[in-house]
Design a protein around this nucleic acid. Sequence first.
DNA 1: ACGTTACTACGAAGCTATTCGTTTGTCAAG
DNA 2: CTTGACAAACGAATAGCTTCGTAGTAACGT
Lengths: 131, 131
Amino acid sequence: MPAKMPDPPRPTDGELEILTVLWERGPSTVRDVHEAVARRKATQYTTVLKLLQIMAEKRLVRRDERQRAHVYEADRPREWTQRQLAGDLLQRAFGGSAKSLILGALSARKASAKELAEIRGLLEEYAKGGR
Amino acid sequence: MPAKMPDPPRPTDGELEILTVLWERGPSTVRDVHEAVARRKATQYTTVLKLLQIMAEKRLVRRDERQRAHVYEADRPREWTQRQLAGDLLQRAFGGSAKSLILGALSARKASAKELAEIRGLLEEYAKGGR
DNA sequence: ACGTTACTACGAAGCTATTCGTTTGTCAAG
DNA sequence: CTTGACAAACGAATAGCTTCGTAGTAACGT
């Protein structure tokens, strides 16, 4: 039975960028991650490497060292981390009011009619299933 | 005509706690802020003072020095900052998908039936007025 | 076998955030 | 005028984040 690990800490901005790559690509080498990151932002290879090493220490990613080029993978699925981040901001900046957070999100970036419809569908689900 | 200031930077965790106090209390002295903060978390007076001074440099707060005990006030209204923070997280962690952010927020902290109803009302408004 | 390439590991520098002790200044009460 | 209370300012220590150069090492082609 594996030891129960505490939740990993909230990722920093740089770490989150890397996690995004890993979520999209799945298990990846440093080179893979670096290529994806460098497309958005001038960055040295070793910078990405170092970040991934730190993230492994923090348990944000897992590392497979069986190949010479180590393979990194996000330790938590995207949805889990997104839930943490949303919940964290909800508490820190919105006093726990989901309504305020949603209002903030919508006013920050106008959603399309299509997206609004999807969101309303989502709430239907919640009102029903959530009891 | 006042010079146009660039937007203030994203507040850190500690800064956000102080902003929360200022939003609730309105213009306050360091002593006021310290008392409010210390209720939640053991903190020295000078720590709060220093943070407020840094926040003034960053333009997160304005300072009125006319009294011996300077009076600090949030530079931006709560809603403005909340919109920034929500938009920032939306981009950084949710790829701009408001739907995902809302899903994250709701799964992080179950909303009450009453709150869900309010949120649905909010979406009504948006679907209608937003056009 | 040997040089070149592709990795990881290490360490350090620069910056920001956080915390708090100490100093300095102001004001008012005695 | 001296003292005590209260305030801002300053400086320093620590920790975390970010970046990258350099060194070491394994594998690969010829």
